[in-house]
Amino acid sequence: MSAAAAPGAHDGAVLRAEGLGKRFAGGWVLEGVDLALHPGEIVGLVGQGGHGKSVLLKCLAGLLAPDAGRVVAFGEDLATLSSVRLAKVREAYGYVFQNYALFDFMTVADNVAFPLRQRGDADERAVKALVRERLAEVGLAAAVGLYPRELSGGMKKRVGLVRATVTDPDVILYDDPSAGLDPVTSSKIFELIARMQERRAGSAAIVVSHDIDRMRAICARYVMLERGRVVFEGGEEDVAGAPRAVSDFFDLDGAGVLA
């Protein structure tokens, strides 16, 4: 389903931020951020709250326009695209929002079917079958006809996850998928993320989270933001040589693993 975004000339990265900067009224929230996402990898984006992680994700998805630098997705600069091209490129994205962002005027099934229907060429019967299948996979077969307000936080998160991945996108952005969930549910969510990634070989993801322990299971590489700048980039084996603030973050309660 990634017909949208296939032009070849992009040195292997599906998504790339170059010198990205974003300014709000109070000053720069992101400054000089370089980041590349390659097919098949899951990058963990970490850092303290309010240091620009969500803003970075929104810039990468073209929801916010950067004030400096650029975002290149599938070889194309997002800022230069016409709305039609941008729509094509966005079809290759999946986005899991921090606050679920389920449409509260639609049922669960309609929420999940929405990205499929928006493509226009969908056969309604196939859509319904796919929606039911994907919801059943995450244990929500019974919730098909419910409205978001009738769901618990963990259920909403799962619906959001299914909605973001139902089109089998090339790039999935997860904005704090386990925020506010209890440990058991959080583990389930991360298992689901891993499963979504296995389904489509070559799809890439960025996961924003504070949950280092659970991220270890799925992320090979990490990027850490502090005050809007990248202060660390690499695998967990590189943490030892990094500044104190970085190793502290990774060391939080997993000392054994690192040693």
Partner: peptide, 16 residues
């Protein structure tokens, strides 16, 4: 409310 709960962003990501 839809803006602050990111539903408007979600619409745009679904090309709506």
């Amino acid at each position: 409310s839809m803006v602050v709960t990111e539903q408007v962003d979600a619409l745009r990501m679904c090309n709506a």
